[in-house]
Design a binder for these strands. Sequence first.
DNA 1: GTGGTCTAGACCACG
DNA 2: GTGGTCTAGACCACG
Lengths: 126, 126, 126, 126
Amino acid sequence: MWIHLSNESKEPLYKQLKVQIKQQIIDGTLAGDTELPSIRALAKSIQTSVITVKRAYSELEQEEFIYTRAGRGTFVKSTDKSILQEKAEQQFEEEANKLFHLGGSLGLTLDEMVTIIHRLKEENNE
Amino acid sequence: MWIHLSNESKEPLYKQLKVQIKQQIIDGTLAGDTELPSIRALAKSIQTSVITVKRAYSELEQEEFIYTRAGRGTFVKSTDKSILQEKAEQQFEEEANKLFHLGGSLGLTLDEMVTIIHRLKEENNE
Amino acid sequence: MWIHLSNESKEPLYKQLKVQIKQQIIDGTLAGDTELPSIRALAKSIQTSVITVKRAYSELEQEEFIYTRAGRGTFVKSTDKSILQEKAEQQFEEEANKLFHLGGSLGLTLDEMVTIIHRLKEENNE
Amino acid sequence: MWIHLSNESKEPLYKQLKVQIKQQIIDGTLAGDTELPSIRALAKSIQTSVITVKRAYSELEQEEFIYTRAGRGTFVKSTDKSILQEKAEQQFEEEANKLFHLGGSLGLTLDEMVTIIHRLKEENNE
DNA sequence: GTGGTCTAGACCACG
DNA sequence: GTGGTCTAGACCACG
């Protein structure tokens, strides 16, 4: 499992860790029932504390991406592709809504925002 | 000047304040060279701490929306509409690009993202 | 606020704390918008660590009993009596279902279980 | 002897094992003086650790459901049906009393609790 | 002052 | 070995 944490990012370490694992589950790199590294092994390999890893794992468990069993380990929950897609879209929607709010507070109209988004899409598409 | 801070919002108070002043400058409610209330007066009137107002003002000054003259007060910088619009768009673009990155890391295609955005636009439009 | 933690209980401290606060919200002792003690003050008064209190508060926030705002404090969420009642019933149901499972694995029939429960009810009623 | 341990269950493996053996004794599948598999044989057949089986056996022995004879093996204790029934009821009662306490702390009345229990019984009955 | 996060080290139950 | 919990102390942003 590839994890890269940045100490310079404003994001807390546990959140960076959480996002990276989540993404690997969503894109299929981590398949259902795969055993994740133990919290201690992972903490050591990314040079952070046990509690930080534990927190990332706990939140992922609560969002039903993984499950942990005391004394046994931590595993990727096997989930339908369609459910993963739905979760991805939900998360995206939340952030997109924040963007609309930001645009509004900046005095942009919805049309202006969508125009900008289309332009960015084209640029990203190249 | 109308300001309303919500204690229930997750946004820090200083940011709520900053956004509200910024928006009033952008939409023309606060015209160029208008004098803003003193830090102490504003803090008192919106029942918050001096530090909170100070921070909002100093970030607005740094972003060149306002300027302060020691001993005289704080004023709205007179700026071309077009420059304000440009600033707004720049800030929006930055955040929109982050959103595209998030979507990508979630495994969504650009088309899926734009589709979701259009749907949200319609919902916000109602 | 009255809190009593037992070191002898098998229940983790953070859970004991959580349950006791939750109960006081449900029974109305802690009304909506009441400010809870700061995590540090509470940690000190019950002689536990900041992180333990934080964890209890976080889980209560996630279950929407309270809300915390960085730099401002932690507050009881104002909630309809009826919603509190509903939450109480849900929690009770979960545990009651576990009891039925236990009874089943012990070879008791549903009727036997309900009979026992009625007898206990009478005893508790006296 | 049929045993099925689930790695996905939150119950510790030793407890799952214990409950399943106990139930088979209570329902008569395992009659008095039946010899149970050796610890090692059972551990191998259900693919778990020796320690897990050992712990289940020793707790069952302590609760007087089975007995071990060094060098000879482990056997089901022959017990009156009525005594088994009584044990089952006692254990159930203990847990039911905890449930009443929980309900009380959640502000539910005894009548409300019994009403919920009846509803759950009907649902489980279907 | 407030909450948010993190570390380093500890002890426990379970396997 | 595994996860679960806890402590004591630290530094940060926010007010």
